[in-house]
Design a protein around this nucleic acid. Sequence first.
DNA 1: AGGATGATTGCCT
DNA 2: GGCAATCATCCTC
Length: 183
Amino acid sequence: MTLPKSFFDRPVAEVARDLIGVTLLVEGIGGPMVEVEAYDQADPASHSFKGPTLRNGAMFGPPGHAYVYKIYGIHWCLNFVCQPGSAVLVRALEPRHGLELMQERRGGLGERQLCSGPGKLCQALGVDIGHNGLPLDALPFELLPASESQDVATGPRIGITKGVETPWRFVRRGSPFLSKPLS
DNA sequence: AGGATGATTGCCT
DNA sequence: GGCAATCATCCTC
């Protein structure tokens, strides 16, 4: 069964860690997540740091919904809203379901390059602003718990200039599908 | 009303 | 390793 909204109504770093290994499907396309990052309102790197705005509105809505935004005018990024002002950015997953469609959307690339980054993942899964605010416990989303315990490692988040000291990047240790090695 | 900027990616040297 | 692409949002005047 797909994860209930209550799964997200917890401290964001805890949710982020527990999401490693959880299978994310959008219209049946996706696979187990191997890299996520946590952001909360006290965090200067977070979109929610300065309070609600038009863009980040979903981050202040109820837990268990999607927050989608466009970055650099080009790429979409998918987040899972947790407690108010906090969310988990989905950065990479292991392509397992719907490989053919993912490759078509991404331009016929190898498996390693299909979902190894937040923008790539959204392109491969067909996520865009139309998904902003949608509940995560209903179609087109499915979130299926991992069947085995996961070897999770943490490190500094990618691509931020503030809040760099908060080690809220969570990865499946040794996964070949990360956006970057842990370092 | 105008300008700086970004939780990125891919192409070029 | 360096940098351009591309634009809605947000902040300042």
